[in-house]
């Protein structure tokens, strides 16, 4: 069965470790280029909003952070599903690797949102639907983090966090829907951020670039963390030792290991 073979391949940490190298380099280059261009573009070159003025520029960090944080949570849910159904070790490695970045980016989204709220709304915090659902996202992340910290056995931790990631992800649309609905009932509502219904291209293009850049960064970061975790978990396995020449390897192999560390340095 070809499909099954493919799954096995995907489940092999060794295979992942080997192919991840190229991806990490690619994502790294993409992240540096796109984030560099997008952030400087947004910070200094994009036009200000006619009503909000320059505080509008916070959008170029706020929106990507929120989007990637949500995507990472979704990815953790998918990994949780894979981990529960196929007992794939790599799934738990992925959850552990996505968790810190997702948590940090949710915090950034909240922090920048608050910084944006002050000049636009006149207050640091509003009980707005989106703010509330982002805060809940942060707490979902914290819950999983606390659970992982509380469990020391790797396989049980994997099962428990896969389960809770899956449950949390299924609940995300329900939470979002209910919070949005709640807000339309309670929050004084009005319109016209800008009299114009949409942003002109010189405003949304930098946003697109930054969003893509941050996705690249997330790819780079998560995969690097996964590599580190794989090395830790498999440090006694033959292929990892083989990476460093192994007990009876020739002198040529440590040189590659040297090169590997050199590149990561």
């Amino acid at each position: 069965m070809g499909l099954r073979e493919y799954w096995h391949k995907l489940g092999s940490p060794r295979w992942f470790y080997q192919i991840a190298g190229g991806w990490i380099t690619g994502f790294g280059i993409g992240a540096v280029l796109l984030l560099g261009i997008g952030l400087i573009w947004g910070l200094a070159f994009a036009p200000p909003d006619y009503q909000q003025g320059h505080s509008f520029r916070i959008m170029y960090v706020h929106v990507p952070a929120a989007m990637v944080a949500q995507s990472l949570y979704l990815g953790m849910g998918v990994a949780g599903f894979v981990g529960l159904v196929w007992r794939m070790k790599l799934a738990d490695v992925a959850i552990g690797a996505a968790l810190p970045l997702g948590m940090a980016l949710t915090a950034v989204a909240l922090f920048t949102g608050s910084l944006w709220g002050k000049p636009t709304w006149g207050s640091w915090w509003e009980w707005d639907g989106r703010t509330v659902s982002t805060t809940l996202l942060l707490f979902l992340y914290i819950g999983i983090y606390a659970l992982r910290e509380a469990l020391s056995q790797t396989d049980l931790r994997a099962r428990a966090s896969a389960l809770i990631c899956l449950v949390g992800t299924i609940n995300i649309p329900i939470i979002k829907y209910s919070v949005n609905w709640w807000q339309t009932l309670h929050q004084p509502a009005s319109f016209t951020l800008t009299e114009k219904p949409a942003m002109p291209a010189e405003m949304w293009l930098p946003l697109l670039v930054t969003v893509l850049g941050l996705y690249c960064f997330a790819g780079h970061n998560v995969m690097t963390r996964m590599r580190g975790e794989i090395l830790l978990r498999e440090s006694r396995s033959n292929w990892v030792i083989g990476l460093f020449g192994g007990p009876d390897a020739t002198e040529a192999k440590p040189a590659t290991a040297q090169a590997l560390t050199g590149r990561n340095r």
Partner: peptide, 14 residues
């Protein structure tokens, strides 16, 4: 943090 995670492992292995 991600880079350190990899480099500590590699150093340990070396």
């Amino acid at each position: 943090m991600a880079r350190r995670k990899v480099t500590t492992q590699l150093e340990q292995l070396r």
